[in-house]
Computed example of a mutant assay.
Amino acid sequence: MPEQPSASELADQVLAHPSVARLHGGAFGEIASYFPGHRVTGVRMPEDGPVEIGVVLRLDRPLQETVAELRGALSEQLGETPVDIYVSDVETAEDPQETG
């Protein structure tokens, strides 16, 4: 059985998708993986149950298409492990850029 990817590897794969603006930890920061000295926000990998991914998406295409692409790509890495993707927010081209 192939080795499961790490939370950081999954985060990098999700962030590489052009419609993903950023990862999101959910309303209370519950979608995260914790490690000594750091955490990976937006990816939760419980020992049993689905991997959870929290994202903010760009509205450059239908959300369902983006979510299906993400789920398919992650499923290739995770095999039989189910993947739940939570869209926490969306951005449009008209959204003002946040400044400091």
Rank of each mutant, 00 (worst) to 15 (best):
G79S: 09
P82C: 03
P96G: 10
V55T: 05
R61S: 08
P96V: 13
E65P: 01
Y86K: 06
R22S: 12
V87T: 03
A16P: 03
L63A: 09
I53M: 08
P5A: 02
A68H: 12
I31H: 02
A32H: 04
T99D: 12
T81G: 00
I31Y: 04
E52A: 10
Q13H: 13
I53T: 06
L57R: 02
V55Y: 00
P36K: 08
E52P: 01
Q97G: 10
V43W: 04
I85R: 01
L78H: 05
V90I: 10
H38V: 07
M45L: 10
Y86I: 06
E47I: 06
A68G: 09
R71D: 05
P82T: 03
R39C: 12
L10P: 00
L63F: 00
P62Q: 04
M45T: 12
Q13A: 14
L15E: 12
S88N: 11
E30D: 10
Q13R: 15
E98V: 09
R39S: 15
D95G: 04
V55N: 00
S88V: 01
E47R: 12
E94I: 07
L74I: 09
R58C: 09
Q64L: 13
Q13K: 14
D12M: 08
V14I: 15
V43C: 09
A68N: 14
H17P: 07
D95M: 13
A11N: 07
Y34K: 13
L23P: 01
Q64H: 11
Y86R: 09
V40I: 15
F28S: 11
P62T: 02
A93N: 02
S8V: 11
M45I: 12
D48V: 11
V83Q: 05
G37T: 10
T66S: 14
A27H: 07
M45F: 04
